[in-house]
């Protein structure tokens, strides 16, 4: 496929692929107030990347497995320990970050580009990475469709869904693993520092104009794709780093829509 060689088209495909995964999961992150959970997963990826390089393992695969491991561990920890999940997440988030950075300092300096790791390299996505994104963009939404009703029910009320549907714990675990995969797949596009933003900002924007959970998911996909397209274009034209530009674009949509809905409320109240 010739056009895949055009780096801009490649970046666009990678970005849209990531949005297709991140937007629906991002909605659930917002509903369940799990953005710190997402952040913790992302931070722990530094350790995952460092491990894969130190042990000379396949990067995508190691990161995928490592993120799954961390997600399951986090879920067990926050469920069973007496500490607040916020405190526990804070501990793990920064502990893995510090450990990862320490480990990286032992590696040869040219092996890891920390800035790319932190802020992503959507313009330099590898063939492997692109494959992983496309596979994820297919598999993750399919699994999500299967567990969707139970997942939304669990989000509304863990008690009701436990009493009536039963397999709530398994559904929750599947969701957390999907989230881990999303983070693992997405970090090369938007980077560790910005992955949570890509998860939640399109979702929050869509919240302003939607009336049902499902509408919000499609809205989030729409705003995500819009942010990727406009962010990439802008970064080309004014020569700024791409991933931050995407998040800036997403945030602008949120601000604009908030303003519009605020004005509308103001107008309605005067009527």
């Amino acid at each position: 496929m010739e056009f895949l060689n055009d780096f801009f088209i490649r970046a666009l495909i990678a970005g849209i692929g990531v949005v297709l995964i991140a937007a629906p999961l991002g909605c659930v992150v917002v509903w369940r107030r799990m953005s710190y959970f997402g952040d913790t997963l992302a931070h722990s990826m530094i350790l995952g990347v460092a491990l894969s390089i130190a042990l000379q393992l396949n990067l995508s695969l190691t990161v995928l497995i490592f993120s799954t491991f961390v997600a399951v561990l986090l879920t067990l920890f926050t469920q069973s320990l007496r500490f607040s999940s916020d405190g526990m997440l804070g501990l793990l988030s920064h502990a893995t970050l510090a450990l990862g950075l320490t480990l990286i300092s032992f590696l040869p300096p040219m092996k890891v580009d920390i800035l790319t790791l932190l802020t992503g390299g959507i313009l330099t996505v590898s063939d492997n990475g692109l494959d992983a994104i496309l596979a994820g963009a297919f598999i993750i939404p399919v699994i999500l469709c299967f567990i969707w009703r139970s997942l939304v029910a669990y989000t509304i009320s863990a008690e009701i869904s436990n009493a009536e549907i039963g397999h709530a714990k398994i559904v929750n675990l599947i969701y957390v693993i999907l989230l881990a995969w999303t983070v693992a797949i997405s970090i090369q596009v938007v980077g560790i520092l910005l992955i949570t933003a890509l998860l939640i900002i399109p979702a929050l924007t869509a919240r302003l104009i939607s009336n049902s959970p499902e509408q919000m998911v499609f809205g989030a996909i729409g705003f995500g794709i819009l942010a990727i397209t406009i962010g990439l274009n802008l970064s080309m034209q004014i020569n700024t780093p791409a991933s931050p530009m995407i998040i800036v674009a997403a945030t602008c949509f949120f601000a604009l829509l908030s303003l519009v809905s605020f004005m509308r409320k103001l107008l309605l109240s005067y009527k």
Partner: peptide, 19 residues
Amino acid sequence: LLIDWSMPIRVNRLMQMSG
């Protein structure tokens, strides 16, 4: 039942949460 504001949900959809 307290539903977080962040989830847009109407009574109609809430009724169908378990099926």
